[in-house]
Design a protein around this nucleic acid. Structure first.
Length: 341
RNA sequence: GCCGAGGUAGCUCAGUUGGCAGAGCACAGCCCUGAAAAGGCUGGUGUCGACAGUUCGAUUCUGUCCCUCGGCA
């Protein structure tokens, strides 16, 4: 019976090698942080944050980092890794995260990844293709050239060197066109080829991915409440401080939700009420994009949160799912051992 | 009460010399492999205030009524 339950795609030898990974995802303001602390405390483990924004030091209110009080003694990792003007990206996240995951495995703890950055989570669950890191010099150079030549220079160039990537991208999507050109320049191979070799088929761990969700109206209400709370905590002062420290508005970190809208208000582009309106709107749109991303994540189990549920109650339900996941893991392992002997 | 102005999408409004209506915002759906809280794409969701009249046909013209906002009493 045990042997029959083995998925054909996983040879027994691989299953015994692979270590488990727990992952909690969901849109912004769904309540991940509070719930995760309860889950981590029950499991006696730590929280590994998969959030592209919480890695920046000094950006606390805008990125909604959980306070020490909220963390209730549970260690949180992968937060405050770089300064706001330092580069950070999915590859760097993956390297830091894998280090922490392996450490926890050595300490016989179950790694619990919690976050809303879909791409970052995916680099852990399904890997990341072997392409070179971002090259700021190349980008600056080619952007200068594009500025001089104007029009669709970048897109046309990509059509020549990597027609497959070009056909998948819209001519207006400069960020992704730039990346494809960069990879071709550094590697001498088209990015589309690198992607085809990888296809997110890496699976370094046996992952249990749970997606938290609420009704759209409830989620939007929570987003509004959270924005108000961030403003009350001093988001404007924090933005002023970052600008005074010399962090310019065009930095990736400063384009994050909160800082972008408040910086526009501080620069006199619109009034305070308009800044708040835009911040709420942009956060709602972001939550929607997150949902679109997670919806197509294979193997994700949704867990819908009711309005009346406390984070402890939700954590209880998650723990039941985790127990079931660990039980199948133990079954598979036992089956593999029987097969091997 | 009288005199103006107006009632069209969730909101602000445009428009149809009579042929089942369109912008912005809001909203919805989607794409994504080292910028991802970034970046990009697509979509009009409607008893045109109500009822009658004229007309082949009325959101548009006419009448009555209702409502909102000004001004005068």
């Amino acid at each position: 019976m045990k042997i029959q339950s083995l998925p054909i795609t996983h040879p027994p030898s691989l299953i015994t090698d692979k270590k488990p990974l727990l992952v909690l995802v969901g849109p912004t303001a769904v309540g991940k942080s509070d719930i995760a602390v309860h889950v981590a405390a029950s499991l006696g483990t730590e929280v590994l944050t998969a959030d592209s924004r919480q890695v920046y030091r000094g950006m606390d209110i805008g990125m909604d980092k959980p306070s020490l009080d909220q963390r209730r003694g549970v260690p949180h990792r992968l937060i405050d890794l770089v300064n706001p003007d330092q580069p950070f990206n999915a590859g760097m996240f993956r390297r830091h995260a894998i280090e922490e995951i392996e450490r926890l495995h050595r300490e016989r703890k179950l790694p619990l990844v919690v976050g809303g950055t879909g791409l970052y989570v995916r680099t852990l669950v399904r890997g990341l293709c072997d392409a070179p890191q971002a090259d700021p010099e190349f980008r600056a150079m080619i952007l200068r050239e594009a500025h001089e030549k104007g029009g669709c220079f970048l897109y046309e160039r990509l059509t020549c060197v990597d027609p497959e990537s070009a056909s998948r991208l819209h001519p207006h999507d400069e960020v992704k066109i730039l990346r494809a050109l960069e990879v071709h320049h550094l590697l001498g191979r088209p990015l589309s080829e690198v992607h085809r070799d990888h296809e997110f088929g890496e699976m370094p761990f046996v992952s249990c991915v749970i997606g938290l969700i609420r009704g759209r109206e409830a989620l939007y209400r929570r987003i509004e409440d959270r924005v108000e709370l961030q403003l009350a905590k001093g988001l404007v002062v924090e933005t002023e401080r970052l600008l005074a420290q010399g962090y310019r508005r065009d930095l990736g970190s400063m384009k994050g939700l909160g800082y972008r809208q408040i910086a526009g208000y501080l620069a006199g582009e619109y009034d305070y009420a308009e800044a708040v309106r835009r911040l709420k709107r942009d956060t709602r749109r972001f939550a929607k994009r997150q949902l679109t991303w997670f919806r197509k994540e294979p193997g994700l189990t949704w867990l819908s949160i009711e309005d009346h549920e406390s984070s402890e109650q939700v954590a209880e339900r998650i723990l039941i799912q985790i127990e079931a996941f660990l039980a199948t893991l133990a079954d598979d392992r036992q089956g593999a051992e029987e097969l091997a002997s």
